[in-house]
């Protein structure tokens, strides 16, 4: 049964300490507090997470698919932005 009056929340779960919260899906809930609980029941049933964020979907400002060309294509020919042009000294262990 659908409940049209309940807003949609996007759910982000942190799998373990040190990792970022990752978008896992969405839930309906009357408010954010209940959304966290619904997300807990839907997305962390198998110990998938140690932390949950929810954001009301309408609060997210996203780039538009129409802007894809002007947003992302200009980076396509700028290969020098990749770190592959640097020579890494052999004794640098972590880079």
């Amino acid at each position: 049964m659908t409940e049209p009056t309940q807003p949609l929340f996007e759910v982000f779960v942190r799998a373990k300490r040190g990792l970022s919260h990752v978008h896992v899906g969405s839930v309906h809930a009357p408010d954010a507090t209940m959304a966290v609980r619904n997300a807990r029941d839907l997305y962390t049933r198998r110990q998938e997470g140690v932390s949950i964020w929810v954001v009301e979907a309408s609060d997210i400002t996203a780039s538009s698919p129409d802007e894809k060309d002007s947003f992302f294509d200009p980076a396509g020919d700028k290969v020098y932005r990749h770190p592959t042009f640097y020579t890494v000294p052999e004794d640098v262990e972590y880079l």
């Binding site: 049964m1 659908t2 409940e3 309940q6 309906h28 609980r37 619904n38 029941d41 839907l42 049933r45």
Partner: peptide, 13 residues
């Protein structure tokens, strides 16, 4: 039979 899908899950849990 719950009022919404999310509550189905909650009560089953």
């Amino acid at each position: 039979w719950a009022p919404m899908l999310e509550e189905d899950m909650a009560m089953a849990n």
